[in-house]
Design a protein around this nucleic acid. Sequence first.
DNA 1: CTTTAATTTGTATTTATTACAAACAAGTTT
DNA 2: AAACTTGTTTGTAATAAATACAAATTAAAG
Lengths: 144, 144
Amino acid sequence: MEITQGIIRRLNEAGLKITPQRVAVMQTLCKLRMHPTAEELFAEVSKTIPGLSPTTIYNTLDTFVEKGLIKRVKTDADVMRYDAITEHHHHLYCAVSDRMEDYFDNELDEMLSAYFERKQINGFKVSDIRLQLMGDFSERKTTQ
Amino acid sequence: MEITQGIIRRLNEAGLKITPQRVAVMQTLCKLRMHPTAEELFAEVSKTIPGLSPTTIYNTLDTFVEKGLIKRVKTDADVMRYDAITEHHHHLYCAVSDRMEDYFDNELDEMLSAYFERKQINGFKVSDIRLQLMGDFSERKTTQ
DNA sequence: CTTTAATTTGTATTTATTACAAACAAGTTT
DNA sequence: AAACTTGTTTGTAATAAATACAAATTAAAG
Ligand SMILES: [Mn+2]
Ligand SMILES: [Mn+2]
Ligand SMILES: [Zn+2]
Ligand SMILES: [Zn+2]
């Protein structure tokens, strides 16, 4: 239950009431590392909380985003996805499989910060640099 | 009509029949530099082609994307946007105003290519590097 | 406990997108 | 040029994701 405690603390810090729905959504989001959609979350959280309303999923996710507890992420596909990791990071994305993975790289971030500190963009103040690395997740078994 | 000729040539090269709808959609996409949505395109193209069906917009855009004539771009908002520029480039994006602008930077691209040639990502083959530069379009009149 | 305000539910809408079949038109064949 | 073929457009109906809203419920403060 240590994980649950951490979630409860974070919800409290955000000034949100602790409800089974919210705890379950956050737990599920942290567990599923694959940037799930609202629908996927609804299916998963419903296992824990029968009778859960889809509306609650949308409400909860919106609230979490508002409070900065999670982030929205978008792919080229049609649905919104959610990310429990709010620290700065990038994404590896394969458009064919619509699969997305996190990518952390400090060296890269420092290089980019330095670059945009030197090279200012006229009329635009950069606050965050997000890379979407398009490509393919090479399966181990691929011969090529 | 030189622009139209170029469009017709590109449609031909893609093996698509030349129709007023397709030419108008492509013209409008090239004219509107702000990455319009399907709905925005429908409104604009309808001026030229009365009685145009929204379905045609969606069909046409899908076809163009399939043939590589245009690209989809996503923001944090709920709708898909379209981009007539298929050459490699990045985007400046302000989440507050949902405004998006193109950003070209050769020096940056070379730096990134070099970086990812050196630093391989385990289990992922990078084919394209897209930056989303989050921030604010600083209005000239802003005092701060 | 009681109270109160926030949250959840359930239902109805909205909006973006897709499915599909009939009507139509571009480009080819004769 | 007329007929033909096939891809395209239209119109309508359906879906899917998301949102609006009011009633029912519940967390947590007093
Ligand atoms: Mn949708
Ligand atoms: Mn939608
Ligand atoms: Zn992520
Ligand atoms: Zn662009």
